[in-house]
Simulated scan of single mutants.
Amino acid sequence: MVRADGPAVLADGSAEEGRGRVRRWFSWRRGRVLTVLGLLLTLLLVGHAQVPNGVGNLGSLLETFLPWLGLAVPVLLGLALRRRAGIAVLAALLPAAVWLNLFGALLVDKSSGPGDFTVLTHNVAAANDDPQGTIRMLTSSGARIVALEEVSADAARTYSAGLAAAYPYHVVEGTVGLWSTYPVDEVAVVDLRMGWTRAFRARVTTPKGPVAVYVAHLPSVRVTFDTGFTAGRRDVSARLLGDAVAHEPLDKVLLLGDLNGTMNDRSLAPITSQLRSAQGAAGDGFGFSWPAAFPLARIDQILSRGLTPTDSRTLPADASDHRAVAADYRY
């Protein structure tokens, strides 16, 4: 009897000890702050569109850097495991699941191979001290259509001369320009209400048919402690550019440029609601383009309607503070 009862007692004791460990792991007394932080992070990811823009454009600021919120997940998870706080572990896994739902598709290579032509956009920077290096990068890119932003009058002459052999057709309006191996006509300025030209529309006739190409450089945004995220001029220009695209008569449309905003930024909805991103449809990764030394956001965009993107990529840094982005398209 003693020998029979012994194991039963041990078994009961082990079971009780196991239940005690589980209770300690999932005790609300441990990791409460981490649990609250995990839940708040989840709410920000799920409800970022509900963060108001009324004060310092906080909503747009959050959406500009939204993917980076994912970095908080391993921190919270590591701290929760160290504290042996099961509830906090679960609270850290919630934002991980939401983040994967929002951005997981960007981590998968969606390229389907070469298209009919390649396009490229690059903010070459007014302070670019090596335009010849930029020209070499552009001519070796394989792009048939190239849009440049922040092109000063002197730089326009330099780029025009350096790109002439590879791109026989070009147009410069204000501080934005278009260089093409295909004929370019029907050029019309798009008024962004900035006092000088930073956007235009042109028809580019590819071997398979015409494409309306918009080149744009929306106003810059600033982040300051006293005013927050100042993007009012950009938002107005985004609405005007969106109106121009909405009235475009051609079925095939490309928008190339520095939009000073990401696809997540609600203030660019007048544009992004009509056009799809090459990076989102055919890219691999986030394709961050700014700042060039350590890219944090993709504010340089290639968007389209009526065309099929087959690949999207970010080029190596040159002397600009932006990185050029390129995409392949099937007509």
Rank of each mutant, 00 (worst) to 15 (best):
A202W: 06
I271E: 04
E150W: 03
L315M: 15
V36D: 00
R330M: 05
A293F: 06
P131G: 12
P207N: 05
D129P: 01
W179A: 14
G133V: 07
W290L: 05
P249K: 08
T134H: 01
L40Q: 01
L268Y: 04
A91Q: 11
S27P: 04
L81V: 11
P249E: 05
A202R: 10
M137G: 15
G31E: 12
A72C: 14
V75T: 06
R266T: 13
N53M: 04
Y169W: 15
A165R: 12
S112G: 12
G232T: 07
V124N: 05
P52F: 02
N128I: 01
G306D: 01
R29M: 02
M194I: 05
V89S: 07
F65H: 15
L296R: 10
V213G: 11
A297H: 00
P7G: 11
R23P: 00
L93Y: 03
D258Q: 04
Q279T: 02
A293N: 04
V89F: 09
G59I: 01
L58N: 01
V119A: 15
A216S: 14
T181P: 00
V22E: 10
G133Y: 06
V46A: 15
A246P: 07
I302V: 15
V176C: 06
V213N: 06
R239E: 14
S140I: 01
R203I: 08
K110F: 02
V189W: 01
A72H: 03
T134V: 14
D284S: 13
A91R: 09
S140C: 00
P295M: 06
I299K: 09
P207H: 11
L43Y: 01
W196S: 15
R323T: 04
E17W: 15
A143F: 06
V55T: 03
L307Q: 07
A72N: 09
V124F: 00
P207S: 12
H247M: 09
W25D: 05
G70P: 02
L39I: 13
W179K: 02
T227C: 01
A91N: 08
K252Y: 00
T158D: 12
A126V: 13
L296M: 14
V215M: 08
L90K: 01
P291D: 13
D191H: 02
A282N: 11
L76W: 08
G306P: 02
A85Y: 03
W196Q: 15
D318L: 02
T64H: 05
H122P: 02
L259N: 02
M194R: 12
N57C: 04
